[in-house]
Design a binder for these strands. Structure first.
Length: 625
DNA sequence: TATTATGACGCT
DNA sequence: CAGCGTCATA
């Protein structure tokens, strides 16, 4: 929780005794839990005439093994079976950083976080693949495309697939398994070790024994078996394992890529199961194995507990495993966490999470970014402009491909910046982001908008003698808010954009106030807040409205900032104004002089000197106690 | 200087 | 809702 003073939690109620122990930002830390609050899909537990068997939801996680390495090995198969790594930025620090390593390389002692040179030291024969570079940055296209290939295969098998990252996806198997259940129960189909292929059973030594046990119970008393949710769930799990095994084999057949899988009752459990036997194996995690498994599972290794919340649990409760967490009573948890989080943790500790698998096989945003560390840090307009051009070059290709393949287009362009006062002294800087409407996939337009947004923000933090006061150590742009179809006339801003290109005088293009109705997509014009209700001219540009609020939000930075928000004229900026205009004129040569009238408006006279200064000095929020 | 480059999502 | 923080993984 970033903006309160320690006496309110994230629900806004008054903190009870003990809650302050955790520090003011606990609520923010607990956000991770919120997405897991969907109600249980108890529908699947209901036995009806149509649906006589009640089973728990069945969820699988498919995770590609050292994916980037596999992608490279498919291109150069002669290296298969040998230690191999994928690094990016070969010419940089220690031969480039490792982002993927083969299991052969792991066996030879190569570690994550090693660099290429480290890897060669422990394993001289290691094959080093280098991520392609384009536009001066790492280009991950080939891995994204390979990931899409895999997803396509998965969609062929299952309706509900959630792309969780470039190389992993959750699958809800419940429906498919339910359909097959009667045929397996009736012996029309048979569960065999062969059908389960590379399956392991968590906390069990043999798939055969586990299956035998299952069938023994079924033979013994079929009616009792069907009536027992425990038995039925195990049976369903085995069917799920067959389906996932088939899927994994098909992925190999179609893509040549190998993967691991986890099959259980929730995202958390299937994710955990998937990691138990890697690579090229899948693991079933039955309900009765959760307890024993949790006894030896580190809290940090459980999904959603790998970050601050997990560390906070470990420190506050002086425990380290899920088994120990399971023994902690809810009231004890409530000493450190909110009511909801306490209950969520208690459920999780017994293996329950109700987060549904979302049916989504496409990314929701498409972006690119790059770090600029040390002397690479950007501090001039020229540098920022240049990199925006590079980013847009990459992004526009990806966006156009996405548009053609998926019949959708982005409506929001977001610029993200991390900046520091001194790139040699500060490790982590201030992050901020600003956005503008995305109205076309025209490179020039995107560069213009992205640079304007970035420059406006950085300049507001200080600009003198051709340099920003702050050095940019990370810069990125991202396209999001995908809408169906292409850019149409109904996309209001594309109308404005089109006019802009014609170089027609603004006052003729926007003669009346009727434009206010069109100004913001999908929003009631009456709700638009334009601060001082300026003339139409000031709001005409598609990004002007956004730029009007481009100054950093002090109150969002760390809570008490608002106390110091006196506004004051930044005299040094005023001095540099003419300089600003000149430089921009050159930088934005590609754009039209007609825009320059607007450019001037992008630099209002008033800036918050105090705020800008403090933003640089004030850094991270405190670490949880 | 030193993981980097992505991506999803919740809160205010 | 725009912007920030958290979590995650190649």
């Amino acid at each position: 929780m970033k903006s309160n003073t320690g006496h309110r939690n994230d629900q806004g109620r008054v903190a009870e005794e003990g809650e302050e122990v955790c520090g003011e930002q606990l609520g923010a830390m607990e956000n991770a839990r919120k997405r897991c609050q969907a109600p249980s899909t108890s529908k699947s537990l209901m036995a009806t005439e149509d649906d006589p068997y009640k089973i728990d939801p069945l969820i699988a996680l498919i995770d590609m093994d050292c994916f980037y390495v596999q992608v490279e090995l498919r291109l150069e198969p002669e290296w298969r079976g040998k230690p191999a790594i994928v690094v990016q930025y070969k010419t940089r620090h220690k031969g480039g950083g490792i982002i993927a390593l083969s299991y052969e390389a792991r066996e030879r002692g190569v570690k994550r976080f090693h660099h290429a040179d480290d890897a060669r030291e422990v394993c001289p024969e290691v094959k080093v693949f280098v991520v392609p570079e384009l536009h001066g940055k790492a280009d991950l296209t080939r891995y994204r495309d390979a990931g899409a290939e895999v997803i396509r295969v998965m969609k062929k098998h299952f309706h509900c697939v959630e792309r969780a990252s470039v190389d992993e996806a959750f699958v809800d198997l419940t429906k498919e398994v339910k359909q097959l259940l009667p045929r397996y129960l009736s012996k029309e189909l048979k569960l065999t070790p062969e059908a389960l292929g590379s399956t392991c059973i968590a906390e069990s030594h043999s798939v055969e024994a586990w299956l035998d046990q299952l069938y023994l119970k079924l033979e013994e008393d079929p009616e009792a078996f069907v009536a027992s949710s425990v038995q039925l769930n195990n049976f369903a799990l085995a069917i799920g394992a067959v389906l996932v095994n088939d899927l994994r084999q098909d992925i190999i057949n179609v893509t040549e890529f190998h993967c691991s899988g986890g099959i259980s009752y929730s995202k958390t459990l299937s994710k955990l199961a998937c990691g138990l036997n890697k690579p090229r194996k899948q693991t079933v995690l039955p309900g009765n194995a959760v307890g024993p498994l949790f006894n030896k599972t580190n809290i940090i290794d459980v999904r959603m507990l790998g970050g601050k919340l997990g560390r906070s649990i470990i420190e506050n409760l002086c425990i380290s495993t899920m088994g120990e967490l399971c023994k902690v009573e809810v009231p004890k948890l409530r000493q450190y966490f909110s009511e909801e989080t306490a209950r969520w943790l208690a459920s999780l500790a017994v293996g329950i999470d109700n987060e549904p698998v979302q049916e989504r096989d496409l990314p929701k945003s498409i972006g690119c970014s790059k770090n600029f560390l040390g002397k690479e840090a950007l501090s001039t307009r020229e540098q920022v402009k240049k990199w925006m051009e590079h980013f847009v070059s990459e992004l526009s290709v990806r966006l156009k491909k996405d548009q053609a393949e998926n019949n959708r287009s982005a409506s929001l362009l977001t610029v993200s910046i991390t900046y520091v006062k001194d790139p040699f002294k500060i490790k982590s800087g201030q992050s901020c982001s600003r956005c503008a409407p995305m109205t076309s996939y025209d490179n020039e337009a995107m560069v213009y908008d992205a640079f304007m947004v970035a420059d406006r923000l950085l300049t507001s933090l200080g600009y003198r003698n051709g340099r920003y006061h702050y050095a940019v150590i990370n810069l990125g742009i991202s396209a999001s808010k995908m809408r169906d179809g292409g850019f149409t006339a109904s996309r209001i801003d594309s109308y404005f954009r089109g006019q802009k290109k014609k170089e027609v005088d603004d006052s003729q293009i926007f003669p009346g106030n009727k434009y206010s109705e069109l100004k913001v997509k999908g929003r009631d014009a009456s709700k638009i807040q334009l601060g001082k209700a300026k003339e139409v001219r000031e709001r005409k540009g598609s990004i002007t409205k956004y730029l009007n609020q481009a100054s950093p939000r002090k109150d969002a930075q760390g809570g008490q900032a608002s106390h110091h928000q006196q506004q004051k004229v930044r005299t040094e900026h005023m001095e540099s104004k003419s300089d600003t205009e000149t430089r921009l004129g050159q930088l934005l040569q590609a754009t039209r002089s007609q825009r320059m009238g607007k450019v001037r408006r992008l630099f209002p006279a008033r800036f918050t000197d105090e705020g800008g200064t403090r933003l640089g000095g004030r850094q991270r929020r405190r670490v949880p106690q």
